[in-house]
Design a protein around this nucleic acid. Structure first.
Length: 280
DNA sequence: GACCAGGTATTGC
DNA sequence: GCAATACATGGT
């Protein structure tokens, strides 16, 4: 990967392998990236607005201080320090269908997202569909986040949400999930649950810790571990993964997919969701 | 109107 | 323990 600084607010990446923006943003792991035109995505991440455009083999980042913050934030956020080529090669040896799933969207990378935002977003995701999840999260940000650029709002902190009640949350129309969001915000802002601890703890302990939050079951806990704490062994199983396991990997579970089960899950989840007739 | 959506808490056996 | 059911909301 080559990275060229144009000015404080713009950089260009060239020769990046195993990385596709569309696949990474649309594989169901994040909710605050939007496709503006065929070659342009805009996202709000860590209280920053970032625009990413694609020209041939170049990826152009535009946003306040991206040049200085590339090593500090973006390299990590997009997981560019890990060799996905090697990981996919190893995953492909495990199972032929997994190999097909890897080839279907070879540019997926697991984003290292903010812990609280991930937890809250996946609480909202339960018994819900992706377009509506995005709408609810957007309303949450517009109502309670900071306007960091005209019409772009940051994700509100857990301490801001912890001070609200159910009536305050009514405008975001999240339904029965309101009390879950409040309980999560309270437990995170009070440090009763600490992301640093969850990151280093044994994964079973970390999962149990997360499930103390009302509205956090096995699936939301697993998504939080994978996308919010980068625990790559975490293996979320939702309806799509259930279908995929039944259809392609009968009798198998997370351990079959090894230490990078979470990454395997992402290729399988996306492949199944994009090819529903194969698993339904 | 019934059914579904990246599930979970509650209830009934 | 384990299977059924309710849960807000909005789209087919």
């Amino acid at each position: 990967m080559i990275f060229k600084i144009i000015n404080d607010n713009q950089i260009i990446l060239e020769d990046v392998h195993d990385f596709d923006l569309e696949q990474t943003f649309n594989c169901g792991q994040c909710f605050r990236w939007n496709k503006i035109t065929e070659n342009l995505f805009v996202g709000v991440v860590f209280e920053r607005v970032v625009r990413i455009s694609i020209e041939k083999n170049k990826i152009i980042f535009t946003g306040r201080d991206v040049a200085h913050e590339f090593d500090l934030i973006w390299r990590d956020y997009f997981d560019l320090n890990i060799n996905y080529y090697k990981i996919k090669k190893n995953l492909s040896l495990i199972d032929p269908t997994l190999k097909i799933a890897c080839k279907y969207a070879p540019g997926i990378r697991i984003l290292k997202q903010d812990f609280w935002e991930t937890l809250c977003s996946f609480i909202i995701s339960q018994n819900n569909n992706i377009p509506r999840i995005k709408c609810i999260i957007e309303r949450l940000c517009v109502n309670f986040g900071q306007e960091i650029e005209p019409n772009f709002f940051s994700f509100p902190s857990s301490s801001v949400i912890a001070k609200l009640n159910q009536a305050d949350l009514a405008p975001i129309k999240c339904g029965f999930r309101d009390s879950y969001i409040l309980d999560a915000a309270q437990k995170i802002s009070s440090r009763e649950i600490c992301p640093k601890k969850l990151k280093s703890e044994d994964i079973n302990t970390a999962r149990a810790e997360l499930m103390k939050i009302k509205g956090v079951g096995p699936k939301v806990a697993e998504c939080t571990l994978l996308y919010g704490l980068h625990r790559l062994e975490a293996f979320p199983v939702d309806v799509w993964m259930k279908r995929a396991l039944d259809a392609f990997f009968p009798g198998k579970n997370a351990s079959y997919f090894g230490p990078y089960a979470g990454i395997a899950q992402q290729y399988i989840f996306h492949y199944s969701r994009m090819n529903p007739t194969l698993v339904k």
